[in-house]
Computed example of a mutant assay.
Amino acid sequence: MKDIILVLAPTKSQQIEAIKNIATDYEVLLQDELEEADAERVRIIYGWNNSDDFKALAATFSNLKWVQAISAGVDYIPDQIKTSNDIYVTNASGIHAIPISETVFAYILASNRNLFYSQIAQTKNEWDKPDPTSFKSLTGKSILVYGAGNIGEEIARLAKAFRMNTIGVNTSGKEREHFDQMFALEKSQGAISQADYIVNALPATELTNDLFDQSFFNEMKESALFINIGRGQAVDEEALKKALEEDKIAGAYLDVFKTEPLPADSPLWQLKNLLISPHITGVVEHFRDEIFPIFEENLVHFMQHHEPIRNIVESDKGY
């Protein structure tokens, strides 16, 4: 019996054929084609299914050697897989930078140019002009990005086109392209009060749990916006709710949450100065074409050397 490549990621028919042509000694199955009896033959997984039923089934994949995630963050993949010395986990770091960065500026520009105000007025058939002093320009404003990786650098690159000041935070404080200033994470507190816009693009790690807490929001300007396109566990949601209700900050945009989907009874839904999007900032129309080359390159290498070569996640870091 052949080992199995289990395809869970969105794929085109020609991509499935490419997998079969590269891995001729493997059987390629979609999830609905997999039987429980096949569990011990699953060696490679392309994509992931975060349902409890699948995670329980995946725990029986005793021959599993490699999981190719289709996201940059892999916090949703079970720890027993991520921390195993016998299983490789690779991510899709790099492919989401452009759509996520564009969404960040969609949030900012819509707020600065009062588009939400005009949309509400339109639903009432009202020709209602906002207060002229509420319109803002990005020129000279400062954006602080936590996570100066591929996504963070693309955010900073776009920010420079708007003639903004760019401040970045990473674990080391090492200089990165398009950032005017860089801070190490543990030394970044002084940068908070400088920023007009703060973006979280950090992965989920023990260091980032509830990083954005009440003391953090207390340091922000009252006119500043907070944007989270990283991971939900980084934000103390109760502290953010309090900061928004008390107008300690001007507003927030959240695409990720500690619990997803966000429960219908969450008080976050009712906040007038918070916009919620359902974890969609990385979505783009040609997503399948963007992610597949990473898997394809890794698959070719795996067939030859029994290991992937690109975007390997370090188990001790989580990214």
Rank of each mutant, 00 (worst) to 15 (best):
residue 151 I to E: 04
residue 31 Q to C: 03
residue 170 N to G: 13
residue 193 S to Q: 15
residue 5 I to E: 05
residue 229 I to R: 03
residue 29 L to T: 10
residue 116 F to K: 11
residue 95 I to L: 12
residue 137 S to A: 11
residue 242 K to N: 13
residue 205 T to Y: 01
residue 266 S to W: 02
residue 189 Q to S: 14
residue 105 F to L: 10
residue 60 T to Y: 04
residue 184 A to Y: 12
residue 51 S to R: 08
residue 32 D to A: 13
residue 47 G to R: 11
residue 179 F to P: 01
residue 314 E to M: 13
residue 115 L to R: 06
residue 117 Y to R: 02
residue 243 A to F: 04
residue 27 E to H: 08
residue 36 E to R: 01
residue 231 R to K: 10
residue 269 W to C: 05
residue 209 N to H: 12
residue 89 V to E: 02
residue 265 D to S: 12
residue 313 V to P: 00
residue 171 T to K: 04
residue 187 K to E: 14
residue 247 D to H: 00
residue 194 Q to I: 06
residue 147 G to Y: 03
residue 260 E to A: 08
residue 298 N to R: 05
residue 241 K to S: 14
residue 252 A to D: 11
residue 116 F to I: 11
residue 11 T to W: 07
residue 196 D to V: 08
residue 275 L to K: 15
residue 310 R to A: 09
residue 8 L to M: 13
residue 310 R to V: 03
residue 227 I to S: 01
residue 264 A to G: 03
residue 259 T to V: 09
residue 88 Y to L: 00
residue 144 L to N: 00
residue 225 L to P: 02
residue 161 A to W: 06
residue 62 S to D: 03
residue 60 T to M: 05
residue 200 N to W: 07
residue 306 H to L: 04
residue 34 L to Y: 10
residue 141 K to D: 06
residue 139 T to W: 07
residue 140 G to C: 07
residue 187 K to N: 15
residue 112 N to D: 01
residue 68 Q to Y: 07
residue 117 Y to W: 09
residue 282 G to P: 14
residue 277 S to Q: 10
residue 274 L to N: 11
residue 315 S to T: 01
residue 131 D to Y: 12
residue 46 Y to L: 08
residue 274 L to K: 15
residue 23 A to H: 10
residue 204 A to V: 09
residue 39 A to P: 10
residue 232 G to R: 08
residue 139 T to R: 14
residue 132 P to L: 13
residue 159 A to H: 15
residue 310 R to K: 13
residue 315 S to H: 02
residue 139 T to I: 09
residue 291 I to T: 10
residue 85 N to W: 03
residue 158 L to Q: 03
residue 155 I to G: 05
residue 67 V to E: 04
residue 266 S to P: 08
residue 232 G to S: 15
residue 107 Y to R: 05
residue 294 I to W: 10
residue 164 M to Q: 06
residue 179 F to E: 00
residue 252 A to I: 08
residue 240 L to T: 02
residue 24 T to M: 12
residue 44 I to H: 07
residue 312 I to C: 14
residue 283 V to K: 14
residue 10 P to S: 12
residue 276 I to V: 15
residue 139 T to A: 00
residue 161 A to P: 01
residue 95 I to K: 11
residue 53 D to Q: 12
residue 287 F to N: 06
residue 309 I to Y: 01
residue 198 I to E: 01
residue 134 S to A: 11
residue 85 N to L: 06
residue 225 L to M: 02
residue 197 Y to L: 08
residue 282 G to H: 11
residue 236 D to S: 06
residue 46 Y to W: 14
residue 20 K to V: 14
residue 282 G to C: 14
residue 194 Q to C: 04
residue 242 K to P: 06
residue 191 A to G: 12
residue 166 T to C: 14
residue 177 E to F: 09
residue 116 F to V: 05
residue 14 Q to G: 10
residue 161 A to Q: 06
residue 160 K to I: 10
residue 139 T to G: 13
residue 194 Q to T: 07
